[in-house]
Write a protein that binds this DNA or RNA. Structure first.
Lengths: 179, 179
DNA sequence: ACGACTTGGTTCAAGTTTGAAACAAAACTA
DNA sequence: TAGTTTTGTTTCAAACTTGAACCAAGTCGT
């Protein structure tokens, strides 16, 4: 199968996407590190908890919502617990499980820092987008996320090789590597 | 200044964006780690070099194009050099400077792994987008990237606080933290 | 019940990233 | 030209991430 390289339009889109997401994440990370003393991911974890019933979630659920591995979450929660923003509790129904609960202090940090965070996101992203673009953004990434998640209605058939460490696709490549 | 929270549309777009970018980066990282033995960033560095005249670039330029800090690049290049994919040279005009040059082996790795990489990007992203969406993607992120980069024609006036570690924006927040 | 598999979570070592501090070589400046 | 500032890059310690290995505690089939 001869490689289907990206078209010029796709290349431009891909490069713009890569550059922007990099810069955006960096900027948000710096802002939150500054104002909340934690990286974006940790902030999202707190935010996720704050929106859950009882402000608590089992580790696996929290990991899933945050789109990160369990391992990574374990570390993150350990840090947040050390800072007193989260408390670990045992799951009553399942003795294996443990749940992370947002503490009052954690909630306070969230409330104190949320405005600055939203302002940043707005200033860097949404204030530059027209309502149509916001809709396009949602449309595009909802689809992409669905494709990357488990089941995907619309793709050949529950067989997405990239999620199962595909074997390298051979073929000669004197063309642009697409970065 | 009372916080301008995200509208429901913006929230949906933001969440979809966050989820998708996370999953996408992870998937690409795994694919490249598998097939090329390096994370996406390192691959991009090689790709960047391969497209530069003489297949070499000064550290600062390379860092800028890759949208990463000099510090991070130093480490990355050290690793790539250890693997024999990149060679460090002294800059002849500026004794402070050093340049990174892609070795033949590095180029070979790139050529060998590019097809698989493109196939992944395509399968996870572009194959799900209509030509219009590709155009929208480019439009949106080109603007965002421009805003995050240095000068920004269209913004108030060379004074983007988020790039200079803004002081926390105060204000009470019983509203959603926007994750 | 019993053993075999699955699930929920943590741990460990190795690799990566970060920001600040350190340096050295330019480039100004008086 | 000496002194100061800027620029290019590395270094260091601390924080974070990764994937594989591990340990329970459930679940299932018989």
């Amino acid at each position: 199968m001869t490689t289907r390289w990206l078209t010029p339009e796709e290349q431009r889109a891909w490069r713009a996407y890569l550059a922007a997401t990099h810069l955006l994440e960096d900027a948000i990370d710096r802002q939150l590190q500054q104002d909340a003393g934690m990286p974006h991911l940790y902030y999202s974890i707190l935010a996720n908890l704050s929106e859950s019933p009882e402000r608590r979630l089992r580790m696996t659920d929290l990991a899933e919502r945050s789109k990160i591995t369990r391992s990574r979450l374990t570390y993150a929660v350990a840090r947040l617990e050390k800072d007193g923003l989260v408390r670990r509790e045992d799951c009553r129904w399942d003795k294996r499980g443990s749940v992370a609960a947002l503490t009052d202090e954690g909630m306070a940090v969230l409330e104190r820092t949320a405005p600055g965070h939203v302002e940043t996101v707005r200033g860097l992203l949404f204030d530059r987008l027209s309502p149509e673009q916001v809709a396009q953004l949602e449309e595009i990434f909802t689809g992409v996320a669905r494709g990357l998640q488990g089941e995907d209605p619309g793709c050949p058939s529950g067989d997405v090789p990239w999620l199962r460490r595909s074997a390298p696709t051979p073929g000669s490549a004197p063309d642009p590597p697409c970065s």
